[in-house]
């Protein structure tokens, strides 16, 4: 394992000092490992809190700022944050209009956010609603399992719900918009390499030189299927077709198309993949209304990518286009 780190157990804490130093319009609560908009709480604005295990940067801290999150809770690497952190964040960003928790659907995240929501409400009466993101079509959905993982759509929920909150919409509306994004988006990922959790010190799984892992999540976990390495054209259809089949997207739909790097993939490959994805969509009569290409929700240094499609209407496009000013997504401001 080769990393630019000091003590493997302190990576998250150490990086938070860097985020604080680099972004003067963010505030970091180090004991609680929280990143805030400097101007939180905003009176009358719904507060947006997300968080999860670290190792997915820029998610979530890189999306804190006007037009997106009010606070991000950083767990240990690949380990959801604890209720104390989430409670502190929830109380801090409450501007009187309630707080929305954006939670990726993992057992640990769900339980810790649930406990936190109960505690925060009990302690201060803050109204908390929450939206689960569960967009990974690589995982079979079922009432009897943990359900699907939350992956790429998380970024889109944070942006779009963030814009709605910034407009001053009430908690129920912001929650409904977040839920709509969560409902109408789907993702699928692929790894060319595994990644190493710093404290584990070695790759979570091993892939041979001619293998790839289809259906990976964002925790270095093995995927659904190990396949021989394939050209980008084939990989694109392995990722896009299951996404299209699942929602289902229809001829004439407009989508936001998001090609995401897993952390160790160079941008030139992501653009190449984006072209393949766009071509498949055109073939299905689907219009790309907006696009996003880059490494926004990662799995440490894993090489690979994911494709996320979100069905959009004019209102979602308007909210996507609204100004945002965060370390990792910024426009119009």
């Amino acid at each position: 394992m080769k990393k630019l780190i000091n003590d493997p157990a302190q990576v998250v804490q150490d990086a938070l000092f860097g985020i604080e130093a680099a972004h003067t319009d963010l505030r970091v609560d180090h004991p609680n490992k929280l990143v805030y908009r400097a101007d939180a709480p905003r009176p009358g604005k719904v507060g947006l809190v997300s968080g999860g295990g670290s190792g997915h940067e820029p998610l979530h801290a890189g999306f804190v700022g006007p037009g997106m999150l009010d606070a991000a809770c950083a767990g240990e690497i690949f380990t959801s944050p604890v209720p104390d952190q989430i409670v502190a964040a929830t109380k801090h960003v409450d501007g009187g209009a309630g707080v929305l928790h954006i939670v990726k659907n993992y057992t640990g995240d769900v339980m810790n956010f649930e406990m936190a929501a109960e505690l925060a409400s009990a302690e201060t009466g803050v109204q908390v609603s929450s939206v689960l993101v569960a967009d990974d079509v690589a995982v079979q959905d079922s009432l009897y399992t943990a359900g699907r993982r939350g992956v790429g759509v998380t970024v889109l929920v944070e942006k779009i719900a963030g814009a709605a909150a910034e407009e001053g919409r009430p908690l129920d509306e912001v929650t409904a918009i977040a839920q709509q994004v969560s409902n109408d988006g789907r993702s699928m990922g692929l790894a060319l390499t595994s990644c190493s959790v710093p404290t584990a010190g070695k790759p979570t799984f091993d892939l041979a030189e001619q293998e790839m892992e289809l259906g990976i999540g964002i925790h270095g976990e093995p995927g659904r299927e190990r396949l021989p390495l394939a050209p980008a054209t084939e990989i694109a259809s392995m990722l896009v077709e299951p996404v299209l089949a699942d929602l289902p997207f229809q001829r004439g739909d407009a989508v936001l198309a998001f090609v995401n790097g897993m952390g160790g993939t160079p941008l030139i490959e992501l653009y190449l993949m984006y072209h393949e994805v766009a071509r498949i969509l055109t073939g299905h009569g689907i219009t790309v209304a907006r696009s996003l290409v880059g490494s926004y929700i990662t799995s440490l240094e894993m090489a690979g990518c994911s494709v996320t499609l979100l069905r959009v209407d004019e209102e979602l496009i308007r909210l996507w286009d609204a100004p945002v000013r965060t370390p990792a997504l910024r426009w119009g401001a």
Binding site: G53, G75, E76, F78, T79, S80, P81, V82, P83, D84, Y106, T107, G108, M111, N112, M115
Partner: peptide, 12 residues
């Protein structure tokens, strides 16, 4: 444990 572990095993 709830405050220090996180993940699934912390709450459980």
């Amino acid at each position: 444990l709830v405050s220090k572990v996180g993940g699934a095993s912390g709450p459980l």
